[in-house]
Write a protein that binds this DNA or RNA. Sequence first.
DNA 1: CCTTAGCACTCTCGCCTCACGAGTGCTAAC
DNA 2: GTTAGCACTCGTGAGGCGAGAGTGCTAAGG
Lengths: 376, 376
Amino acid sequence: MSGPLTERRQTILKLVIQEFVDTATPVASETLVRKYRLPVSPATVRNDMAALEELGFLTHPHTSGGRIPTDAGYRFFVENLMERTSLSPAEQRMIRHQFYQVRGELDQWVQLACAVLARTAHNASVATAPRAEQLRFKSLELIAIHETMALAVMVFHGGIVKQQTLPIEPGRTPEDLRRAAGIVSDLLADTTLSRAEELAATATFNGIPLSDFERGLVDLVVRAMQAFEEQAQEQIYSDGLLEMLSQPEFLPASGRDDAERAIERMRRTLEILKSGRGLSPLIPQALASGGVQVIIGGEHGEDAMRDYSVILARYGVEGAIAGVLGVIGPTRMAYPRSISTVRYIASLMSNLLAELYNVNARPSEVETDPNGDQRA
Amino acid sequence: MSGPLTERRQTILKLVIQEFVDTATPVASETLVRKYRLPVSPATVRNDMAALEELGFLTHPHTSGGRIPTDAGYRFFVENLMERTSLSPAEQRMIRHQFYQVRGELDQWVQLACAVLARTAHNASVATAPRAEQLRFKSLELIAIHETMALAVMVFHGGIVKQQTLPIEPGRTPEDLRRAAGIVSDLLADTTLSRAEELAATATFNGIPLSDFERGLVDLVVRAMQAFEEQAQEQIYSDGLLEMLSQPEFLPASGRDDAERAIERMRRTLEILKSGRGLSPLIPQALASGGVQVIIGGEHGEDAMRDYSVILARYGVEGAIAGVLGVIGPTRMAYPRSISTVRYIASLMSNLLAELYNVNARPSEVETDPNGDQRA
DNA sequence: CCTTAGCACTCTCGCCTCACGAGTGCTAAC
DNA sequence: GTTAGCACTCGTGAGGCGAGAGTGCTAAGG
């Protein structure tokens, strides 16, 4: 009964999605014909729409009022209909420029990525800080703040830095601190957590027992590494909430109950972004796969996310460090643009990190086209 | 015509505010009599209410439907009617415990303060990071990340730390880095920005010209200090948006236009918190004065804030470092509780900072009652 | 078999009306 | 100064109605 998915029907599906993404209102057969100068009549379009509906790609909320895409419709669009675009060179340049301005301050990269993603994709963005696949200690520095307080700066492989203040006994000289830090650095150099724990248990360095102070420092490092490892639930940064909430989905179209639902949606959205519920399960998945992942609506079963789509990409340096960034918004989303934005920024971040890792290090500016080295 | 502000009228004002804060609905004369077992009749209460209205402390939105307090009403309540309470010892203990858990990681204090404030006051919270009244350099450390990349950790007086990666030439040994950092540290030790700029211009240390590398480091420090200084618009952290948005003010009471207004309010609120518009002007004020500041509604002229009250307190160490933290929410707010929460957390943070500054340094746990040393 | 014109049908949206109830303001008595 | 009684106001929600939009169907045409 439903008939085959002819060329024309695919075109109509594509146009319905385009139009719906633009206007956020159900699209009628006549609108489509008029706006895109289709060489067929509205009735024909209606027939095709009915077929698309039976195929599960379209639906209509009310008897009257046009069609809207289903999750499956969006899925088909993303897989088969959408042309793959890139951000315009001007936009790429602008984005690179912003990253250039905070070069060096790598603790700001993630936030910047979120901000840029949100502004460019007109939706909320999420990102996790880059995380080493296995944390390895590099060195420890102690910096006196005053007589009884010092700052411990722990550096791990891959530029990950953690700092912590600790109380010290008044007598210690800067030289003292330096020597103790040096011993601990040498002892723990290049160790992973499990090895560090072993070494901490022996409490000796080259056969010589550690002093109390040194043992305290070793413990500090081990605790920091444990804390890092235990933090299974990756912290998710996000931005652009306002951007997303300006989408018409969050405006009360009409009627009082619709308004109430809009508010409820808003609150839900906030919760999702704040707690990461519904988002966290996607992270490992995105980390595992290369390329850009698109999760549309309730596809992966999380009910809270039924009305949202997520576009995620992994970024980082192969075999060393990786994080995830992406865009989240209503299923009615400009997929091509969002996807290219996510892809571009992930590549950019990857390049920046690679530079930090001295893999293909480049003078100091990112110039390569980050779209090139990205898998499908 | 309006008559004097008798004792009973003050009581009624107080009860109206209490009741309205509790229920978020306009309070009727009869409700008041019934609920608080007043020894007078509803009619009498109505008369007093009318008087309070003429005095500008109450208003009623519609002819029918009870009274609600005006900004002036809240103001009078806060100044004269409210009993000054403290957080319960149990709550104080719980809060201290949370801070104890992140002792050492002072970059998390502000965030924690925000989180705790929001949860305790059931409203959104804001805070600025502690800021030295005048930034003074302390020392610089260079830590190699790999052959061509180093991490510069700049420490300023008061435990303020800024880190930045910088590219280095491949040949440099750790000893090289340490020496260069030492020279720069000595050169710039204890300088303020203007002095550092002068020293950077001469580019000599004890008469000996600096190497290119050392000059680069000096520039790095100066730029960091400039960036810090220029950041006139203090970054405002915030939390508890969700907490605030669960307040009934953000629910559509009835009718479609009310729903629309609720959403609009929500969006506004987001903007206020994100951009700090309407909040920023209050910061310097709060920094200047001791004690807790209460700004009710549009009192200070900012229109965007007409429906919000802000409770701010300064925290920090006298003459050294200071920040601001507080609560923001609808004018219908539990002022006594909010104020005591803000006061308590400000004192707690002050104590923690004092410890870091070695003023009245204490073993490592905060035990004093932070309410003690707070001015009115 | 595909396409198209015509038309009845359905459903939302906005508007109006109306009755109800809550709470007040006023007046007069205590 | 306080209180009872009562008329009045106004928000609220339910129900009804007309207009308009867009479809589904049917039958005719290529």
